[in-house]
Write a protein that binds this DNA or RNA. Structure first.
Lengths: 196, 196
DNA sequence: GCAATTATTGACCGTGCGGTCCACCAAGCG
DNA sequence: CGCTTGGTGGACCGCACGGTCAATAATTGC
């Protein structure tokens, strides 16, 4: 055998992901990636391929962990409607308001690259569809539990909730302060997910 | 006096704006700008300053005309609540689905640049505040006309409607087809702006 | 029609980028 | 121990980018 890797692959991917998250794709140079990863250019290329492939790996890491959080969030509340409220409010409940500051990596990437990069567009669609399906399931449960009217089909409602959530993320990126953002989130939650 | 300009400044700004709109800031090269404007590099610099200043001018042009459309839209409907419905549905009613395809230039710019460019962030806040104020005025009118409940203050409601609209724009950028997007827009409009 | 002034053009420049390559080095095996 | 294998790091490359500049053209005032 030969010399083994001297770094933790997942740790590197997470560092790279944070860099792309903070600065975006184009604004992140290879030098930045070398700095945050602690690796040399050659090692980075040998292990992960070029900048684009590395980005896709980081993006996938993000969507995987976000998807995990989402499942957790939807499963944890005793009543499905409360889980949906938490889903809408997620951008402002994130500790430290991190989501409000740097937004959602998937959304950032969609805005920056989806029109020109088919891989990113595909990942965006994949993530969007998976999220819609998960949320729709909870909407159905909330309807079964009698907490949500049956006048809208679950998938439609899920898309509306997702749009509302992403709209909040956008408002956060305009620098809106967290209290105002929270109030807006509540307004949306109240209107879209009424008490009965 | 000396030699006069041989081009229409506004026409150039609009061409430049469309280029930034289609491709984003970083992905637009000076060569692209020279091509779409029909001017030489020197003329572009002499007339508008560097790429960043040119971008800010194009962005301002966009927000000015969008603001004009918004005023028109809000003023044209006989009942304020219908104007608000049109506001939420605007991203899908845009002829040709242009808004759904390339989104909103201000939103695109916010996502790409707001974290690193104070000028863009300032413009985003300015636009967001102006839009909120205009929409809030219509919300107040709709309440006066008895079409909207008085349980939420107009500014809060305006922010919620703006978030919903921008959420729709985001969904459009993930490549969601226009029919599905329209259905989602309707769901949001129905829930946020009920008939009575 | 000449002088003064400003727009126009495109060749040119320095820089920083993404990407490559190779000399060096650590680990396992006989 | 030395040989083989593959990881490592940084010097290096070509290129495309944003930006500059000097020669030239067009217009007006006198």
């Amino acid at each position: 055998m030969a010399r083994p890797r001297q770094f933790d692959e997942e740790q590197v991917i997470r560092a790279v992901r944070d860099q792309f998250w903070d600065a975006g794709y184009a604004a992140t140079s290879l030098e930045d990636l070398v700095r945050v990863s602690g690796l040399g250019k050659g090692s980075l290329y040998g292990a992960f391929g070029d900048k684009h492939r590395l980005f896709l790996k980081a993006l996938r890491e993000y969507t995987d962990t976000s998807g995990g959080y989402l499942r957790e969030m939807l499963a944890s509340a005793p009543r499905a409607v409360d889980a949906l409220r938490a889903f809408v409010m997620a951008p402002v409940n994130d500790p430290g308001g991190a989501a409000a500051r740097r937004g959602c990596l998937m959304a950032n990437s969609t805005y920056e690259l989806a029109t020109s990069d088919p891989d990113v567009l595909a990942e965006a669609r994949r993530t969007y569809e998976a999220t819609t399906a998960l949320v729709a399931e909870s909407v159905g449960r909330a309807q079964d539990e009698g907490d949500l009217p049956r006048d809208v089909n679950p998938v439609e409602m899920a898309r509306a909730l997702l749009a509302a959530q992403q709209g909040l993320v956008f408002m956060g990126r305009t620098g809106l302060d967290i209290d105002t953002l929270t109030a807006t989130a509540r307004t949306l939650a109240v209107k879209l997910l009424p008490d009965a």
